[in-house]
């Protein structure tokens, strides 16, 4: 494939597709939108290890594959360890002259369950050991592949099949685990949040994360029409609202320095984000208020970090 670019403002975007069409992702899937842009950014000199999940089953039913770059899937919880082995193996082979020295990006990918729940240990180990890799979490805020079961990435008040709203339940009773802070707490060179609703921000972060020496972590919010229950033409809009309400701020932590990439003078009310989504339909007004207060608090904490540790 010849490399050509399309220019969007000051952004150059590769015209080549490394994630081939014909896959089985759902209509309006935020994850595959992000994945396509990520692959364009990473280019062909890459090896990807992916966990079990929507992203894996939708791209590779034997005997076909959507991957035009080297790609491996083995299990659910081991991407951190597997990419460690891939990186170490290539490093050893290059050092020993068995294969030519070259720049290859090693990229691990998993969903919120594969990252924040079952795969957290392997990821933490890989980050702590300082392997040179980029890790991308596709966060659609529940186990969507198995049918919308709650994860530690599911936000408070969302109804899922294993934390359903009921007569005496608001649905998810816990606040979303802050995975970016957990990654950043390992003192890694680069951690960031992103969302396919902000494609150039996403691509720039992937480029930065891939070029940095050492572990880099990017947490990508991927709106899911099926699991969040909104019309599939609203994916981009919902992602924007997540950012504009401050529920999912776009920021980077580079060598401990915080930077907000989108910092609106005034946040939209969380209600604007929550109302279009069926997973929140049951929520009474006082619960909305509770979420609003929490978002205000978390956003203020983030702003304080930005002020204290400015990039």
């Amino acid at each position: 494939m010849a490399q050509e670019f399309i220019k969007f403002g000051k952004n150059l975007v590769d015209t080549r597709e490394f994630l081939a069409p014909g896959h089985n992702f759902c209509l309006g899937c935020g994850e595959v939108l992000a994945m396509r842009l990520v692959c364009k950014t990473l280019g062909e000199k890459v090896i990807i290890a992916m966990a079990t999940g929507c992203d894996e089953v939708s791209s590779t039913p034997l005997p076909v594959t959507s991957w035009r770059v080297p790609w491996v899937h083995t299990l659910f919880e081991n991407v951190g360890a597997e990419i460690s082995g891939i990186e170490a193996g290539m490093k050893a082979l290059m050092r020993k002259g068995r294969i030519p020295q070259r720049d290859i990006k090693f990229v691990g990918m998993a969903g919120d369950g594969g990252t924040m729940d079952i795969g957290l240990q392997a990821l933490s180990g890989a980050i702590e050991r300082g392997h040179n890799f980029l890790y991308l979490c596709w966060d659609n805020e529940a186990y969507m592949n198995t049918g919308i079961q709650r994860s530690s990435g599911t936000p408070y008040g969302a109804s899922t099949t294993t934390a359903p709203a009921g007569k005496i339940s608001v649905g998810q009773r816990t606040w979303k685990k802050n995975m970016v802070e957990i990654a950043a707490a390992h003192n890694i060179p680069y951690a960031a949040t992103a969302c396919p609703s902000y494609p150039f921000d996403l691509m720039n972060k992937v480029k930065k994360g891939a070029e940095i020496e050492g572990p880099a972590y990017i947490h990508i919010l991927c709106p899911c029409p099926v699991g969040w229950r909104f019309p599939s033409n609203l994916t981009i809009e919902i992602g924007r609202l997540a950012v504009e309400t401050g529920i999912f701020p776009l920021y980077e932590v580079e060598n401990g320095r915080y930077k907000l990439n989108i910092d609106r003078p005034k946040l939209k009310p969380v209600e604007e984000y929550i109302k279009p989504q069926g997973r929140y339909r049951h929520l009474p007004q006082e619960e909305l208020q509770k979420i609003q207060e929490r978002v205000n608090e978390e956003y203020a904490k983030l702003k304080a970090k930005v002020a204290a540790f400015a990039a």
């Binding site: 090896i47 290890a49 491996v72 083995t74 299990l75 081991n78 360890a81 597997e82 990419i83 460690s84 082995g85 891939i86 990186e87 170490a88 193996g89 290539m90 050893a92 082979l93 068995r98 294969i99 392997a122």
Partner: peptide, 12 residues
């Protein structure tokens, strides 16, 4: 074991 699987996948 997962790291060994990864290393083996790249021919190490």
């Amino acid at each position: 074991m997962s790291a060994c699987v990864g290393a083996a996948a790249v021919g190490a």
